[in-house]
């Protein structure tokens, strides 16, 4: 058992965990933070996306012990204009992928603001504008089986600076 301390959604938490416990299960099962969802547990769907020190990661492939001392933000700790934009643009249906989509979008916007290129960027040395094509590429790690992609992209587009 390993003892870890994290800030989760602004609150100091500590837990004694087996090393094999994923950050996702630490949040969901040990800490009762059920916003992040388990869709595949294999890094293929994005439903478990959370922000760690402001960066988006997949909590299912993260061992919680590796994040000792980190600041973790899940959907429960998010207060962002994207949330209302998702509702306005119907950027979800069942809502299961939504916590991951929103956390991912927040991380993605920060990456873009820092000038990061993407696979959709024509010239990687430059600073790409956040076109719909760029948004779609950068959000492609978040599956939505209900097919609310149009609404998600519209919501992000509306909120992006």
């Amino acid at each position: 058992m390993v003892e870890i301390r994290m800030r989760v959604n602004g609150a100091e938490v500590s837990a004694e965990l087996e090393a094999r416990v994923s950050l996702l299960d630490a949040l969901r099962v040990r800490l009762g933070v059920t916003g992040p969802k388990k869709g595949c547990d294999q890094g293929a769907c994005g439903a478990c996306t959370v922000l760690v020190d402001g960066r988006r990661i997949l909590s299912c492939l993260a061992l919680a012990v590796q994040y000792d001392g980190s600041e973790v933000t899940t959907i429960e700790g998010v207060d962002h204009p994207l949330q209302a934009a998702f509702v306005r643009h119907d950027g979800f249906q069942c809502g299961y992928c939504t916590p991951g989509q929103i956390c991912s979008a927040i991380g993605m916007l920060a990456e873009h603001a820092a000038g990061a290129p993407s696979a959709a960027t024509e010239h990687v040395a430059g600073a790409p504008a956040l076109t719909r094509t760029e948004i779609r590429e950068r959000m492609s790690g978040n599956l939505c089986r209900c097919g609310a992609y149009n609404g998600i992209v519209a919501a992000i587009e509306e909120v992006a600076p």
Binding site: G43, L61, G141
Partner: peptide
Amino acid sequence: GASGQLRNM
């Protein structure tokens, strides 16, 4: 390769 989240890890 992979996705934005995975590349961050």
